[in-house]
Amino acid sequence: MNSLAIVRGDLRARLGTHKGLAVQAAFVAALWLVGLLGTGPERGGESPMWVASVGLLVVVVYLVTAAAGGEIAFPGEKGVLDLAAAPFSAAEIAWGKGLSNAAFATVCTAGAWPVLLFLQALRTGPWQESLAQAAVLLAVSWGFGGFATWLGVTVESEVSRSVLLWGGIVVFLAGAGLVGSWPWHPAHAVRPLAPGWARATCAASFVGLGVLSLWAVSRRIPRLREEV
C-alpha cells in the first residue's frame, strides 16, 4: 500500500501541479510537432515516418527519465532520498518508484500512441504496428527511468549526475549509427516494420535494465539511511 501511496503522490505532483501541467503542455506540443514532421511525403525511399518514430522515442524517453532522475523537479514530489527518511521499507520505496516510473511512462506513451497510429494510418500501416512501437517506447523509457532513479541515489553531485545521465543516453541513442545496425537497438526497434524479435529483445533488455536499476536502488537505500 505504501508503494501505491508513492505512485499516487508522484503522479499528483507530475500532473496535478502548475509546473506538471506546463511540462505536459510542452510534452504534447513536442508530440504534435514531431507528428507533423512525420507527415512529410516520402522521397527517394527515405520515410519521415522513421525519423518521427525516433523523435517520439527521444521525447518520451527524455520526459520520463528527467522526471525519474529529478532533473525536472515537480513541487511536492518525494525523491528516493526523501522517502529514505520516511518509515518505508527499501523494497516499498523501490517498488513505489518502479511503479511510479511505469505509470508516468504509460501516461507519456499513451499520449504518443495516437500520433504513431496517425502516422501509420497515413501510410495504410496496420494499427498493431503502432501498438508495437508504443510498447518499445514504454519499455525503453521505463528502463531509462529506472537507470535515472538509480543514478539519483548513487551520484551525489548534480552536475556529475546530469552529465552521466544525459551523456549516457545521448551516446546510447545517437550512437546507433556508429555501432552498426543492431536491430534490437531502440532507434531501430522503434522504426516502422522493425522485426518483432528485435522489438521483443529491445523491450526485454530495457525492462531488465529497469528491474536491475530498481534492485540496485533497493540495495542502496539502507546505506543512505546509515549515511543519514
Binding site: 500532473l15 501541467l21 505536459q24 507533423l36 501516461v107
Partner: peptide
C-alpha cells in the same frame, strides 16, 4: 488538416491529464 487533427487530440489529452492529476 494534420495539424488540426493532432492538435485537437493534444489539447484534449492535456485537459484530461489536468483533471486526472486532481
Amino acid at each position: 488538416p494534420a495539424a488540426v487533427g493532432l492538435g485537437t487530440f493534444a489539447a484534449l489529452w492535456l485537459v484530461s491529464l489536468a483533471v486526472a492529476g486532481r
